[in-house]
Simulated assay, not measured.
Amino acid sequence: MEGEGVVLYRTVPWDRKLLAQRGKRPAGPLFKFTCPQGSVGQLHLPHCELYDQGGCEFLSVAHVTDDKKVEFIDNLELTDTHVIINVTGFSKYGIVSEEGRPISPIDSLVLLFYQLPDVGKRSILKVLLLPGNVVLKEVREERRSSNGDREIYLETTSHCQLTPKQEYTLSTDLTDDHRIKPTKASFVDFQSYENYIPTFQLFMQSIVKEANISLKENGSETLVWDGLVWLPASLTEFTSTVLVPPPVTPYILPGQVFITKHRMALETRLGLLRPILLRLQQPDLGVLIDEEREEVLSNTTKTLKNQALLDMVIRKGARAQEHFYQALREADHCLVEDLEEQTA
């Protein structure tokens, strides 16, 4: 960031045909960014290449504009985990790789989602093989929206290294009736940035409390990942084992909440500042001194004055923000009431 601003971002689908025409394929999610203040000067996009194996040499960043034009940025700064680029404007950015590059392992995740037992005591453990730079929160939200409370996410030691286009097999130490489908599957990394579907499913015919599961390259006995999972019999059992009492949340003063929620509106809608400034200068409060008041009023426009006052109050902490809030309620009760009704 080169200054203060609000940045919003989300992932959007890639146009793979557009990339294929230029000999590229996705190597990360495609992010759509907005920043009304234009204060972002640099982006750090996560990659999953193994830095010491040369995979980063084939990376570039695709800048996709709203009219579906794409330019590729090759002037990159690279770290073990991120690709860094300088930006002057915003639309969509994502990491891509050369289509014909040599195939080598990448940082990956094994994510487990468990479909709880039904009335017949049957359950399903769903195993997702994903690149390490997927947005985990988005994966979980997508699975939750599709399956609701019937499926829960099982946290485990997820990280491993997998090779794109390589076939893998899943195995378990269970001795009771179970089946794994499919028997083998390819890890297709670039499809996994949008399609959060299981690579394998372990079907269990009876209540299972724990299981060892492992992943191997097809035709090899070498483990690329293994884990021990505890499988709850019900949602109640799951929540009772994974939930801990929440930490005591410190009390947040109303003024701090109000300024945080309505900062942008206050910059343009604050009216007369003098009554507020005089109140904040009173000895019983001592929020502002004469020099700070003059600094606020020396700005050339109403918006700049408002911004300067808000910056000053926020820097002074929660108590100063509470005094500002109370002073504003006295000076412009209607404005405070209108803003609070909008978020009620």
Rank of each mutant, 00 (worst) to 15 (best):
I207S: 05
I207M: 07
I207E: 10
K209Y: 03
K209H: 07
K209A: 03
E210M: 06
E210W: 05
E210Y: 05
E210Q: 14
E210R: 09
A211R: 02
A211C: 04
A211N: 02
A211H: 00
N212V: 09
N212Q: 11
N212K: 11
N212M: 11
N212E: 12
N212I: 09
N212G: 10
N212W: 10
I213D: 02
I213L: 13
I213C: 02
S214T: 07
S214E: 14
L215N: 09
L215M: 13
L215D: 11
K216A: 04
K216W: 02
E217S: 06
E217P: 01
E217I: 07
E217Q: 11
N218Y: 15
N218C: 15
N218S: 15
N218K: 15
G219A: 09
G219Y: 08
S220N: 15
S220Q: 15
S220Y: 12
S220A: 15
S220L: 15
E221P: 01
E221W: 02
E221K: 11
T222Y: 11
T222M: 14
T222K: 15
T222L: 15
V224K: 01
V224Q: 02
V224L: 02
W225F: 04
D226E: 14
D226H: 14
D226Q: 14
G227P: 03
G227S: 14
L228N: 14
L228G: 09
L228T: 13
L228R: 15
L228F: 12
V229R: 03
V229P: 02
V229C: 05
W230E: 11
W230R: 08
W230P: 00
W230A: 05
L231A: 09
L231V: 11
P232A: 10
A233L: 11
S234Q: 04
L235Y: 12
L235Q: 10
T236C: 03
T236K: 11
T236I: 07
E237F: 00
E237M: 02
E237D: 06
F238W: 12
F238P: 04
F238A: 08
T239D: 09
T239P: 03
T239Q: 10
T239C: 07
S240H: 02
S240F: 00
